[in-house]
Design a protein around this nucleic acid. Structure first.
Lengths: 137, 137
DNA sequence: CTGTATTGTTTGATGAGTCAATAATTGACA
DNA sequence: TGTCAATTATTGACTCATCAAACAATACAG
């Protein structure tokens, strides 16, 4: 297993990410990251940006910027925690929930992965990625 | 298989890409993309940017910019094809070959993936990604 | 040949992510 | 109380990717 083979594999991951993320956005109208962000926020109920950051393993700066955009679009409401003014509470709006439900309903739900892989293979892939990601610092 | 599950999977791919690419760069000193680019160019011998673009499935603009950087660092030489002035020939230099050989030798060769996954699993992952990527336009 | 299409590369604008620096708030404690 | 450290969010500077537009060189149709 030499470096060349590894770089080939890693480059395949990069390509997969690019394809898959752009097709997700094309088909749902949501960027993958912001979709995930909304879902996390929705599942958590009202929560701070820190919680989202930890769950998504994304940079602080990215969180702030995405949430600003989501706020402008009316998908989330943000307000400082009155008891700890460092924290910012985030809550998804009814509008967001509607739009999410809408794009879930569309049978456009991501074709790319489903077309390429069987349920069994998707499950396998997910397991491998989880293993890989859990080894990252 | 609903959209939420899919987005989780896709987000895992994104995270894997980020982890893996940054650890590759940390450990080899080469950005994954530029490493791959040098390898492709090396394997092809003298070739045009178009060939690299097709092999790597990367945007034209990205190719130009990476190659400029590689040129500044003395890793490639570029010159116009005398017989077709639209084309740019690329050739990797001796310096590049040396530095590549050097970083291959280092037993630092990418730990992350190797630590996380067995050879068997890496093989599986590679197969799944290939399948996934071949379904992208 | 001469205009039109096509090809290969380059450039500019934009979006997403990082890290590092800063600000603001809180908590601990001498 | 006053200062020092830690926490949370924000901002700025940078990299890397994309798309679209521009460009120069070539090919080709009449």
């Amino acid at each position: 297993m030499d470096l060349r083979e590894i770089s080939r594999l890693l480059y395949q991951i990069k390509l997969a990410d690019q394809h898959v993320a752009s097709s997700f956005e094309r088909e749902t109208g949501f960027s993958l990251t912001r979709y995930e962000m909304l879902q996390v926020a929705k599942e958590r109920g009202v929560c701070t940006q820190r919680v989202i950051k930890e769950e998504m393993k994304i940079d602080n700066a990215a969180i702030t910027r995405h949430l600003k955009i989501l706020e402008e679009k009316g998908y989330v409401v943000r307000e400082r925690n009155a008891e700890n003014h460092r924290e910012m509470f985030v809550r998804v709006t009814e509008k967001a929930e509607q739009d999410l439900r809408y794009c879930e309903r569309g049978e456009r739900a991501n074709h790319l992965v489903l077309k390429a892989l069987s349920d069994e293979e998707i499950h396998q892939l997910s397991g491998l990625l989880q293993k890989l990601n859990s080894h990252a610092l």
